[in-house]
Design a protein around this nucleic acid. Structure first.
Lengths: 196, 196
DNA sequence: CGAAAATTTGACATGACTCAACTGGAGTGG
DNA sequence: CCACTCCAGTTGAGTCATGTCAAATTTTCG
């Protein structure tokens, strides 16, 4: 189990000694979630950073109109959680729930700080992790403000082909910020033009 | 000059010794840019991380339709650059130019790595810096996919009142992902309803 | 002052939304 | 195995927000 996390850490260029792995391993809790179960609920304060080792979760928010907006899909080998809530100890605006049965490793956010203090190179791991997330958010913002729904859909299936297979159209629509009806029409237009 | 950077580092909870300040100071280059001058041009490889001490820059990209999309405004006390390009040593898709005469401190990206290696707690500085950026990008994505142009405009002037004062409506429109004409209409509608 | 750029306004086109009805498949209980 | 319900997905009609193109007006700045 924990090996998957160490593998992820190594993939960011951080090589841990056995003693360091032992320390991190002692802070990590394994947990299983069922499909539809919540990892984090809106209004509660996030106290864990969650690393997904199997399954699929989504991070979403209800907008003013009461619709779900999916901020991100969180598959295996990814972290999820609410950085804002767990840092400032304020209630989260996010919901995180599971679209599949999901196994995770979770670490209390305060322990993340203590791990970084004890193993300074772990700061480098987080630096790289966050930097990579930032790079993909740049692209998402640009896509969101400059492209039509149809173009954004094509971006999505190109970038996350594995996720597209695993989620319903409703979920994809909530990720793109459009209605399921619009997505349905977009798909039918694309298949028409593709078959010409 | 460099004091402003140290102040920013301290504000993220990282307290530097005089020796550490000296090391960082030796890697930093001061540079002045005129209004309209480019800090980074599309197609070139970014090799610097740039800390703005005075003035205002913008990071933008040309979309497929040839329009400018502003990813972020970069005022004093902020970093700018292209994390992706400078990390992977690939040509940047971004343009960064100055909307005002701008003074910066720049550090070669490779030196950032050497600074982090020599002063491990600087990883913590970057970790926090990136985390804060990520938090604001979450909000921007949600705003972009779920709100009307009018709501996004209100978000913008509320969140960046100091920047709204300093840039043209064209720039704001490029940030919101709408046409200058639409922004003009939105503003005139808002002033009508506000005066009722 | 005069040229160029920014902003505003009008007319019209279009993309996406809403509301509503319909279709088809998955699961459930008799 | 069938009848039933539930939910995802599709489709149609009308509406609204935003874009496009064009022209008028105002502002900026050399």
């Amino acid at each position: 189990m924990v090996e998957l996390l160490f593998k992820n850490i190594l993939s960011k260029g951080v090589d841990l000694s056995d003693a360091e792995k032992k320390l991190i391993g002692s802070k990590v809790e394994f947990k299983k979630y069922k499909k539809r179960q919540f990892i984090l609920q809106q209004g509660s304060v996030a106290s864990y950073d969650v690393f997904i080792i199997k399954g699929l979760a989504r991070t979403y928010i209800f907008n003013e109109k009461g619709q779900e907006n999916i901020i991100s899909f969180n598959p295996e080998d990814w972290w999820t959680g609410d950085l804002y809530s767990s840092h400032f100890k304020l209630p989260s605006a996010f919901n995180i729930d599971c679209l599949e049965d999901t196994d995770v490793l979770q670490i209390k956010t305060v322990e993340v700080e203590s791990i970084c203090a004890a193993i300074p190179k772990m700061n480098q791991y987080y630096r790289i992790l966050y930097r990579n997330s930032l790079i993909s958010f740049y692209a998402r913002v640009q896509s969101a403000i400059s492209k039509t729904a149809s173009e954004r859909y094509l971006d999505f299936i190109k970038r996350y082909p594995n996720i597209e297979q695993r989620v319903s159209n409703q979920q994809i629509a909530a990720y793109l910020g459009i209605t399921p009806q619009s997505l349905s029409r977009i798909r039918s237009n694309l298949s028409k033009t593709a078959s010409l």
